[in-house]
């Protein structure tokens, strides 16, 4: 079977164009109608219309930016976890890492809300990171015993259920007016994200992304398995620690602001690999980021427009589009195994 040589530039141009188009659509559509001229004016700072400025700059723009940043973070995190566990359906949601982050964030939020303190966005990230690391520690413990088998995924899903159950329990019995927000958040949503939040998540995710991108070479070597990576000089211990930290930071940033979002982490890296016909990290990492951003913009657009003014939770939309992709991945891999190649 010959490889169809594909120039990665076309892929990046394509993804960039899709991202920009979806970003524009996200700014355009909403419960209040604006013309595209009005939106351009607001963005260029020439608009006199106060409500337009508030809606577009205060609500739609941060939400759009959050979808791009967090979608990208989720996809890159998924790619890292798939590489780390050599498992095609590993991802922050499937492995229970998102749910772990959700649990700690919810508990800490409830604790502080009862004292009347609203948490800063960086504090949320730290709480989410702690939760991610807890789930991750458990997963690593299991993976030591179970290897790459499906047991890993099963235990991840179980951790996810346990953490979600405890979160729901806590949310149900917490008494505070802010609980409504908490409920929305725990279902996964990009709503209510301020431009301050965007700055914090932007800095965190960007930093983690750059470090990840700089590790492309090591990740590439690791794709051949641990012993070969070691034989070419990768410091495996350091590499594994970095990979765990990075994937946890990335998925924690998402969970802290938008709650757990399913399937993006699994589906997007696979779509990107299919688009570029390669698994080279130096291409897949930035491409996953762009595609993840585009995927989340698309899903968020649907989540808030299809039954407007009622908003769907983002996870229910990502699941509708992401789950079939996961099934397709499993089937195509199964076929490959069966035909003996």
């Amino acid at each position: 079977m010959k490889k169809a040589e594909r120039n990665p530039v076309f892929g990046f141009v394509f993804l960039g164009a899709v991202l920009i188009l979806l970003a524009a659509l996200n700014l355009y559509f909403g419960s209040v109608k604006f013309t595209s001229a009005e939106i351009t004016d607001v963005l260029l700072g020439k608009s006199e219309n106060i409500s337009a400025v508030n809606i577009i700059k205060g609500i739609r723009l941060p939400r759009m930016a959050a979808a791009v940043i967090l979608g990208g973070a989720l996809s890159v995190s998924g790619f890292l976890l798939q590489t780390f566990f050599s498992n095609p359906i590993a991802g922050p949601f499937v492995l229970g890492i998102s749910s772990g982050a959700k649990l700690t964030v919810a508990l800490i939020m409830i604790f502080f809300l009862e004292k009347g303190i609203v948490l800063s966005s960086s504090a949320m990230i730290i709480a989410a990171f702690a939760g991610s690391m807890l789930s991750m520690a458990f997963i690593l413990l299991v993976s030591g015993k179970a290897g790459k088998s499906s047991l890993l995924i099963v235990s991840g899903v179980m951790i996810g259920y346990i953490c979600s159950a405890i979160t729901d329990f806590a949310v149900t019995f917490a008494d505070d007016s802010n609980i409504v927000n908490l409920h929305n958040w725990s279902m996964g949503s990009f709503s209510g994200i301020s431009s301050g939040d965007v700055k914090v998540m932007g800095v965190t995710v960007f930093a983690a992304f750059i470090v990840t991108f700089m590790m492309s070479k090591q990740i590439g070597a690791y794709q051949l398995g641990e012993s070969y990576a070691k034989s070419v000089g990768v410091n495996i211990r350091l590499f594994r620690i970095l990979l765990i930290l990075l994937s946890s930071i990335l998925s924690a940033s998402v969970t802290a602001f938008a709650g757990p979002i399913s399937f993006v982490g699994i589906a997007v890296p696979h779509l990107v690999k299919g688009l570029f016909k390669t698994a080279k990290p130096i291409i897949i990492i930035p491409a996953s980021f762009l595609a993840g951003g585009a995927f989340c913009l698309f899903c968020d657009l649907i989540a808030r427009t299809i039954f407007a003014p009622t908003e769907l939770s983002i996870s229910s939309v990502t699941a509708v589009f992401g789950a079939p992709i996961v099934i397709w991945i499993m089937l195509s891999r199964g076929k490959k195994k069966a035909s003996g190649v």
Binding site: S86, P88, Q223, L224, G225, S227, Y228, K273, K277, T278, A279, K280
Partner: peptide
């Protein structure tokens, strides 16, 4: 050990 690199 047999390697199973995807799309390489």
């Amino acid at each position: 050990e047999r390697i199973d690199p995807e799309l390489m």
